[in-house]
Write a protein that binds this DNA or RNA. Structure first.
Lengths: 128, 128
DNA sequence: CCGCGATACTTTGTATCGCAAAGTTCGAGC
DNA sequence: GCTCGAACTTTGCGATACAAAGTATCGCGG
C-alpha cells in the first residue's frame, strides 16, 4: 500500500527523487549536520567556523533553510550584542533524517551492485 | 598543500570539502550509481530511463562527466543506428567511491551525534 | 563624550549550472 | 520519395551558490 511514489522508483530505480535539493547542497548539508550535533543551537559565528563558510554564504543558506522551516533563528533579546542562535526545528530534523535515509539507499545500492559487478555481470537488469 | 586540507578539516569538522561538486549533483549521482551497477555500459536511452532525465539534461551531465574523465562515451561503429555506449572509467569509479566514503562519514557523524542529542539536551546554553 | 577598530550580520552582483524546449540527423515504414 | 519517430545536440532561461562590499553595534582609548 501507499506505493504510489515507489511506482516511479520502480520505473526509474536510480532517479533518487527523494534527494531534497534544499538539503542536498553541500553547505546546507554541513550546516544541518552541525545543528543535529548541537540541539541547543549554534551561533552565526560558530556555524561559520564549523562549516568553513563566508558570512554572506552562510547568511544566504540560513535564509533558505529558515524559509523552508528547517531551522529557526532567534536573536538574543538581551541588551548585549544580539547574536543569532540557530536551531534545527523538529520538522527540519525529520526532513534531514529522511534525506539521510535516501543517502543510505544510494550507498547500499552502490555497494550491492558493485558486489554483483565484481563477481560478474550475469544479466544487466533485464526486466527490473 | 594536501595537508592543508586535513588541517582545515580539523578546524572545520563539518565542512565536508570532500564532497565533489561534480559527483554530488543529484542527476550525476544517479548516473554514476547506474553505471556502477552496469560495468558493461549503458546506452543513452537506458540512462535516460533509469535516471528519469530529459534528453538535454542527460546530454549535459554526460558532457560534464566525460570532460572530467569520469565516464567514456563510445558510439557503436556499426552501420546501424549509432548508439552511444556510456561506461564508467577506472578513475571515475575510484572517484565515485571516494565520494561515497565521504557520504558515509556524513551519515555516521549524524548518527553518532544524534545518539548524544537523543539522550537529552542537558543545558540550553553551552557556555554562559 | 567621541572616534577607532572589531565583530555580527546584511546586501548586492556575478558567474555558474541545472533544466527543458526546440532543433538536427538518421533509420524505418508507407 | 516522403513522413514519422527515435537518438542525439544545441540553445536560452531561470535559479542559485558564492564572495566581496556595505551597515550597524559594541568595546576601548583619548
Amino acid at each position: 500500500m501507499a506505493e504510489r511514489r515507489d511506482k516511479a522508483s520502480a520505473d526509474h530505480p536510480f532517479a533518487y527523487e527523494g534527494l531534497d535539493r534544499v538539503i542536498h547542497e553541500r553547505a546546507r548539508l554541513s550546516l544541518l549536520t552541525s545543528l543535529v550535533a548541537h540541539p541547543q543551537g549554534l551561533t552565526f559565528a560558530a556555524l561559520k567556523q564549523l562549516c568553513d563558510l563566508t558570512d554572506g554564504n552562510l547568511f544566504r543558506h540560513l535564509q533558505t533553510l529558515e524559509s523552508e522551516g528547517i531551522v529557526s533563528a532567534a536573536k538574543t533579546p538581551g541588551t548585549g550584542r544580539p547574536q543569532t542562535l540557530v536551531r534545527l526545528t523538529a520538522a527540519g530534523r525529520r526532513r534531514y533524517f529522511d534525506y539521510l535515509a535516501v543517502l543510505e539507499t544510494v550507498i547500499v545500492d552502490a555497494a550491492r551492485n558493485t558486489q554483483l559487478a565484481r563477481r560478474k555481470p550475469p544479466r544487466a537488469s533485464s526486466r527490473g
